[in-house]
Computed example of a mutant assay.
Amino acid sequence: MDVFYAYTYSTAGWLSLQSLSLITAPKIVTTLLLEEARSASEMEVYFARALGFALLTVAVLTVMLTGSIPLSSVSEPVTTHDNDPKAPYAVPTLIVTSLFQGWSAFYAYTQYLSTGQTVFALGMTGYAVVAAIGLWCVLFASSNGKISRKTGADKRTAGFPFKNSEAAKKHAGKRGY
């Protein structure tokens, strides 16, 4: 599976998991996060469910805008360019969702430091893993690269300080040396 699609589905899965717990059991989630023993108020339940619906919406939009689900059945066929094979909004969606995952990991980390609750540590871990995959995709998987037709290697790489002698042996025989 392509790392880009793995990131897309892991983002959608992580957000969906959080949203389903907020929608189906908001009193349990808010009770876990409260410091004193009391039941959650109706306003806390409302905001938890509203956040759950927002997270579910972001998860669905992430999958749709990155081209993981073809939108031709939903609307007119989308034409993609040669420089972006996934979808026209794939890279911007990737950047925005990666920033969201990183900010959420940082926020969960600060909450974990101030309260010491394990729930925030688990949330921080989930956000950080998905943010790291997104950062990897932004850095390495968002461009096609400059692939050489002769060698099949990326032209933007250099041999310094290590030389790829095995590749040089394979291609020396093809050139007749």
Rank of each mutant, 00 (worst) to 15 (best):
D2Y: 09
F4G: 01
Y5L: 12
Y7F: 15
S10Y: 09
A12R: 05
L17F: 13
S19Y: 02
I23E: 02
T24W: 14
T24V: 12
P26F: 04
K27I: 06
T30R: 09
T31V: 02
L32T: 12
L33T: 05
E35A: 05
E35C: 06
A37M: 08
R38F: 08
R38G: 00
V45F: 04
F53L: 12
L55E: 07
L56K: 03
V58E: 06
M64W: 08
M64A: 15
T66P: 00
G67V: 01
G67N: 00
G67F: 02
P70D: 06
L71K: 03
L71D: 00
L71T: 10
S72C: 10
P77F: 03
H81S: 15
D82L: 11
N83V: 14
P85K: 07
K86F: 06
K86M: 09
A87P: 00
P92F: 03
P92D: 02
I95P: 01
S98C: 15
L99H: 14
A105D: 04
A108K: 02
A108S: 13
T110S: 10
S114Y: 10
F120S: 02
L122T: 14
G123A: 11
M124G: 01
M124K: 03
Y127R: 08
A128T: 01
V130D: 00
V130Q: 02
A132C: 01
L135H: 08
W136F: 15
C137L: 07
F140S: 11
S142T: 12
S143Q: 09
N144D: 14
K146C: 12
I147H: 06
S148A: 13
T151A: 03
G152H: 10
G152E: 07
A153V: 11
A153P: 00
D154C: 11
T157E: 07
G159Y: 09
F162A: 14
F162Q: 13
S165M: 11
E166C: 08
E166R: 12
H171L: 10
A172K: 12
A172I: 02
A172E: 09
G173Q: 11
G173C: 03
K174G: 04
K174Q: 12
G176V: 13
